[in-house]
Computed example of a mutant assay.
Amino acid sequence: MAEIINVIVAFVVIIFIFRWATSGSNTDRTAADTLGFRPKNVSQEMLDTISNMFPDIPLDNIRYDLLRTGSVELTTNRILERGYLDAPPPSYYQLYSREPTRPRSPANTNNAPVLLKAKENLIERFDLQHLVDANTEPIPDSEIGGRSVWEDTPEKREASLKERKAKMILAARQRMLAAQKNET
Rank of each mutant, 00 (worst) to 15 (best):
R63F: 03
P58V: 00
E163D: 05
E163I: 05
T153V: 07
S23P: 00
Q44D: 14
F11Y: 11
S105Y: 11
R104E: 01
D133P: 02
E183A: 15
R68L: 10
L161P: 00
A2E: 13
L35E: 02
N135L: 15
G83T: 00
D48S: 13
P58S: 05
A31Y: 02
E155L: 09
R29N: 07
P103R: 12
Y92M: 08
S25W: 04
I62H: 02
T49E: 13
E120V: 09
D86L: 10
Q129W: 08
E73V: 09
M53A: 09
A179K: 12
P58Q: 00
N61H: 09
E99A: 05
D133V: 13
N121I: 03
S23L: 14
R29P: 04
T27E: 14
M53K: 12
I8G: 02
G83A: 00
D33R: 12
E3S: 15
T153G: 09
G83Y: 00
I14E: 04
A10F: 07
R78Y: 01
Y84I: 00
I123H: 05
E163S: 08
R102K: 06
E3P: 06
P89L: 08
A32Q: 12
L170K: 07
A159F: 05
P90A: 03
R68V: 04
P55V: 03
K117T: 07
E163G: 01
E3Y: 13
E163Q: 10
A21D: 06
A166V: 03
S142Q: 10
K40F: 06
V7Q: 15
F16N: 11
V72K: 07
T30F: 14
R175F: 10
L85V: 02
T153F: 11
D33T: 08
W20R: 14
P88M: 02
P88W: 02
D65A: 14
T109D: 07
T153A: 07
E73I: 08
A107T: 10
Y96H: 10
A112Y: 11
Y96S: 00
R38P: 02
N26Y: 11
S142A: 13
P140G: 04
R78V: 04
A134L: 12
R125W: 07
M168L: 11
R38Y: 11
A134R: 14
R29Y: 11
R68E: 08
T184Q: 15
V132W: 06
A134G: 04
A178Y: 05
L47I: 14
M176G: 03
T136C: 11
D152R: 15
E137S: 14
M176L: 15
L66E: 01
L116N: 07
V114F: 05
K117E: 12
V13Q: 06
V9N: 03
L131W: 06
V9Q: 07
V42A: 04
P113D: 09
T69D: 05
V114K: 07
K156T: 03
G70T: 01
A179L: 14
E143T: 01
I17E: 04
A112K: 13
N26H: 12
E183C: 09
V7C: 12
N6V: 09
